[in-house]
């Protein structure tokens, strides 16, 4: 028996920690366990992936999980990001968990997801119980329950162990435990169909690389303005909204916006570029008149 779990999220959401909580819970449960994150530049908001394996026997695998048994997608906007490839290798036996406001059937149809789907608004639970959009403990709890082999007490001990190693306050850890246990109870008992055998890797074939014209075969980029193709607006958890009636046109928000997403219109009013505003809320905190409000974003696509 081996279970392969993949976690997708954005830097800062807590998916590395989630993979570690599940790893530690498995270890405490007596399994062979292995967890590892994979990321490029360690940048907040950038897509990242983490893996946990648990097994009754020594694990003869390392690194990426191409075909997961459980696939946790902690940020639904990643479903629309081709390069994040969050559905890679999922099959009829995969349980895909999506942190979303939408019902499972809607997500399944929109993205053509195969296999079992479980949806839960983990962000909402984290905001309500912990008060911050940190998803590690809650996401780990959902995964632990769906493995069908990790008990509530191992989950609780793992949350405490992992968060203590991050030097968090006792109170914060307690809230995380509460969020985890809430999620654990919210997810139904693992059904036998959750325990299908592992699918063999799809057979690919070896190809021979030929010498390429150096205009192709060198690591340079010819396309212009490729960053424009990446809209970062769907990273937002909260949408800053300026009340132009009360705005004094002081330009504080314009100056403070770290991503240059606020411009000044012809009437001298600040306007937010919602295609790219990441929802960092710097403007919300800096506005001296307090005329910027924040609305929770629940529809990501």
């Amino acid at each position: 028996m081996i279970k392969r779990i993949r976690f997708h999220g954005r830097g800062g959401q807590g998916m590395k920690t989630a993979s570690r909580i599940v790893g530690t819970a498995s270890f405490l449960e007596g399994f062979f366990a292995q967890d590892s994150p994979l990321y490029g530049a360690e940048r907040r908001g950038a897509p990242m992936v983490a893996f946990t394996r648990l097994s009754k026997e020594t694990i003869l695998e390392r690194g990426i999980i191409v075909s997961p048994d459980i696939n946790m997608i902690a940020d639904e906007t990643l479903l629309g990001d081709k390069s994040a490839n969050v559905l890679q290798g999922t099959w009829e036996g995969t349980i895909t968990i999506i942190n979303t406001h939408y019902p499972a059937s809607h997500v399944k149809d929109t993205h053509g997801i195969v296999g079992e789907i479980v949806t839960l608004d983990i962000t909402e639970i984290a905001l309500n119980v912990i008060g911050e959009p940190v998803l590690s403990s809650a996401a780990a709890a959902v995964v632990c329950k769906l493995t069908g082999v990790i008990t509530k007490s191992s989950l609780e001990n793992a949350v405490i162990k992992e968060l203590s190693s991050l030097n968090l306050k006792k109170e914060t850890i307690q809230k995380n435990v509460q969020a985890a246990l809430t999620c654990f109870d919210r997810i139904p008992e693992a059904h036998p169909r959750y325990r299908k055998p592992i699918k063999e890797a799809v057979n690919d074939e070896i190809v021979k690389l030929e010498y390429a014209n150096p205009r192709i075969g060198t690591p340079s980029v010819y396309a212009k303005e490729t960053t424009k193709l990446k809209k970062t607006g769907n990273w937002r958890l909260f949408r800053p909204v300026i009340d132009h009636e009360k705005c004094s046109r002081c330009r504080t928000c314009f100056v403070y916006c770290p991503h240059s997403c606020i411009s000044i219109d012809e009437g001298d009013y600040p306007q937010i570029d919602y295609n790219n505003c990441k929802g960092c809320l710097t403007c919300f905190y800096e506005c001296p008149k307090k005329v910027i409000s924040k609305d929770r974003e629940v529809k990501a696509w």
Partner: peptide, 20 residues
């Protein structure tokens, strides 16, 4: 070189995005 058809598809996709 151990390189697969899948790997080749991936690099071709990226070369396209890079305007190559």
């Amino acid at each position: 070189l151990l390189y697969t058809k899948g790997d080749l598809e991936q690099i071709n996709n990226l070369l396209n995005i890079a305007g190559k």
